[in-house]
Nucleic acid binder design. Structure first.
Lengths: 203, 203
DNA sequence: CTACTAATGGAACTTGAGTCCCGATAAGGA
DNA sequence: TCCTTATCGGGACTCAAGTTCCATTAGTAG
C-alpha cells in the first residue's frame, strides 16, 4: 500500500536544512524580481544561494515548485488590516495597500513573476490561490462588520467585496497597463462599494 | 546616422515568407495551449511547424517576441459586438463573451499563456496592452451610446466601464481561481453597471 | 556521547537549446 | 523573362541546464 515517503527536508527540518531553504528562497525572490519567472534556473539559484546544485534540484525539482514554496512562505507571513469602523474608509485603505504593493519596485515585480509562475505551473497555481484566499480573508472581516452595522445589505459575501476592490487594480496591472495611482485606488474602492450597496454580492 | 535596417520578413513578405509565419504562429499557439509559455522553445516550434530552426531564431529570436507577434496577429482579427440598445443587456452580453472565451478549453489556456508571456517579456507586454486596447474599444461604443441615451451619467468613460466588466472575471481566472460560470458573468455585469450609475467613472 | 541516517554537495556525464557558417531557393522589380 | 538578393534551411559546434553517483556532513533520537 501507500509507502508515504516524507517530502525532502521534512524529517530533519532544523539547522542546516532550514538555512538552505531560507537562502534558496531569498535567491529565488531576488531572481524573480530582477529577471522574471522565465529566467528562474535552478542552477543559477544554487550558485547565488551558495548551495549545492544537486540540493536545489532534489528538494524543489522545478522553477514552478520553487515559486510555489515561496508563495506558501509569503502566505505564512500575515499582515495587519485597518479597522476604521467605516466601510468606505476600510475599502479605500485596502485599495491603497494593493496599489502601494503593486507599484513598489520590488513587490510589484515579485507579484508579476509569481503570477507568471502560476500560469506556467499547476503547483504554483494552487499556491497562488491559497495565498489570495489568506489575504482576502484577512480583510473580509471589515466587510462582515459593515454588514453587522447595517452599512451593507444583509447576506453580502465579504470575500467577494474585497475581491471586488482588487480586481480592477490587477486588471490594470496585468491587462491594460493603465496607471496605478491614488485615483485608481479611489475608483477601485468606490466600484466595490457601489456594487456591494446595490446588492450584487448578496446570496 | 540611422541605417534603419528593415525587420526580417518585411521586404519580401509574400509567398514563402507568409507561409512560414502562418505555420510558425499556428505551431506557437498550439504549444502555448498544450504546454504553456514556459515550454515555448523555438527549436520545438521549428520542428512542429516543419520550418528551419535557423529561420525561427532569426525572425523571432525569443519566445517573448513570438508571443508578441501572435498577439498582434490576434488583435488584427476583430470580433463583432452586440447592440441590444440597453446597457444592462450589452454589458451582460460582454460578460458572457468573456466567460465563454476564458472557459473555452483552447482559448482559455491560450490567454493564460499569453498573459504569462506578457509578464516575462516586455515586447509581449506591449503587444498584450495593444490587444486589450483594441478589444475594449470594440465594446466601448455600447457604453457611449448608453450615455447618449441618458442611461448612464454624462461624462462616463466608456472604456473604464468595459474594463470594469472584465476585471472581476480575470481576477477570478488569475488570482482566486473562483469558478467562471453564468452567475459570475451576471455579477461582473451588475458590478460595472452599479459603479457606472454611481458615477465612479465620470470625468 | 554515540549511532543512525537524512540531507548536503562535489564531480563527471548527458542532452538539447541556441549560434554560426554558407549554399540553396524563390520573391519581386526591371 | 532574367537578375538581384532577401529569406530559408541543413549541419556542425558550443555551452550550460539538468541528471546521476557517491562520499561527506550534521540533525536527532536514544
Amino acid at each position: 500500500m501507500a509507502d508515504d515517503v516524507p517530502p525532502r527536508g521534512a524529517v530533519r527540518p532544523g539547522g542546516r536544512t532550514a538555512r538552505v531553504r531560507e537562502s534558496v528562497l531569498r535567491a529565488a525572490a531576488d531572481t524573480l524580481v530582477e529577471k522574471g519567472f522565465d529566467a528562474l534556473d535552478l542552477a543559477e539559484i544554487a550558485r547565488v544561494a551558495e548551495v549545492g546544485k544537486t540540493t536545489v534540484y532534489r528538494r524543489w525539482g522545478s522553477p514552478g515548485a520553487l515559486a510555489a514554496d515561496l508563495l506558501d512562505d509569503m502566505a505564512a507571513q500575515s499582515l495587519p488590516r485597518s479597522r476604521t469602523g467605516n466601510v468606505r474608509d476600510d475599502l479605500r485603505e485596502n485599495a491603497r495597500l494593493v496599489v502601494r504593493t503593486l507599484t513598489d519596485p520590488r513587490q510589484g515585480r515579485l507579484f508579476k513573476a509569481l503570477i507568471a509562475a502560476s500560469l506556467c505551473d499547476e503547483q504554483a497555481a494552487m499556491a497562488l490561490r491559497r495565498f489570495y484566499a489568506v489575504r482576502i480573508d484577512e480583510w473580509a472581516g471589515c466587510v462582515a462588520d459593515a454588514v453587522e452595522r447595517g452599512e451593507l445589505p444583509p447576506g453580502t459575501d465579504p470575500r467577494r467585496v474585497i475581491a471586488g476592490v482588487s480586481a480592477p487594480l490587477y486588471y490594470a496591472l496585468l491587462n491594460t497597463g493603465e496607471l496605478l495611482d491614488e485615483a485608481a485606488a479611489e475608483r477601485a474602492a468606490e466600484t466595490a462599494l457601489a456594487a456591494a450597496r446595490a446588492g450584487v454580492w448578496v446570496g
